Simulated scan of single mutants.
Amino acid sequence: MTIQDVGLASSGTRAVSAMAVQPRRTPVRRLGERYTPIGHILQRYREEVGLSQEALAERAGLSTSLVSKIESGARSVSSQTISLLAPVLELNDATRERLVWLTDPELRRIKAPRPVPRTPTPRETVVLQANPNPAAYLEPGTGVVVAANTAFTSTFLGLRIGDSVIEWQLLSPWARGVLADWYLETHLRVRSCREALTGFVPNSYIDAMKTRLRQAQEFEDMWHNRVDVDYAGRSVLRLRHPSDDPDDVRRMYVLVSSDDSPWRHLQLVPTQADTLGTSSDDPSITVLTAESARRRPVPACIPMRASS
């Protein structure tokens, strides 16, 4: 089966030939909105590793009473307590750092994903233009594609400017054709999204996002279960080439970085001296603007606004 066959075939996912074209903007924090307390987040992690409150307390050197009060919200959590709990809960450094942010209201406000009120600058545009390999700017948390070069849009078929990467991976039939390790890669994306948003953005936003993503029957399992430990630290992405050969798989190093811009910089670099069939002398890129978002039709099958 070729990549085109996979993209056009029906699957357990509701067929979506065109992803939603308006960006899934992360809402600004407002008074009165409900957020998941850090105690509830820690409780979920405890349940994932199959520990009772008593077992967690004993292994972390804490009292059972303290663990119970933290999970119920009766006691606040310090960064020192997070440091004691993290190894027992088998949390990586990135997750532990996010939990520390949640212990401090000011850090939580600063680190929360938020809408980006501008388009890429000429300098940022030139960076994408100069890259012959797939590259894009993504909004933190939601993974909305803000700008991308030709190599990126021709590699990730059906993923357009203004789309959310996580929705493309789960809901677009093209994703299952492009990503050779679709389940593992999408599971990694779903869990990363969950950890980046939970506690930082309103629950109403997360609930609305989950409603859309449940169109994929695999979503619940991905959301509630941890990523395979051997894949969680992957540095190589395996992509199918859009050719007639289903075994034509390219291995690309995944590089994610950031600077003083508000976006995450994603670029893929071939592990061998080849490109994904794209021409390096065609550096045109596509940029999301408010005008282009308004002009594009919205598929009726995907709700665009978070329910209150």
Rank of each mutant, 00 (worst) to 15 (best):
R29L: 04
G32E: 02
V49H: 06
G50S: 08
Q53M: 09
A57H: 02
E58A: 11
L62G: 13
L62V: 13
L66Q: 13
T81W: 15
L85M: 13
A86S: 10
P87F: 03
N92T: 11
A94S: 09
R98Y: 15
R98E: 14
V100Q: 15
P113Q: 00
R114L: 04
V116L: 01
E124C: 08
T125Q: 11
V126S: 14
A130F: 05
N131Y: 09
V146K: 07
A148Y: 03
T153R: 13
L157D: 10
G158R: 00
I166K: 02
Q169H: 02
L171P: 01
P173A: 06
L184K: 07
E185V: 01
T186N: 06
T186I: 03
T186R: 02
C193V: 00
R194S: 13
G199Y: 07
F200E: 11
V201C: 07
S204Q: 15
I206E: 08
E218M: 04
F219Q: 11
F219A: 04
D221E: 10
R226L: 10
L239W: 03
R240N: 01
P242I: 05
D244H: 09
Y253T: 08
Y253Q: 08
V254K: 11
D259Y: 12
W263L: 01
P270N: 03
L276K: 13
T278K: 12
D282I: 10
I285L: 05
V287M: 01
V287G: 00
L288S: 01
E291P: 01
A300N: 15
A300P: 15
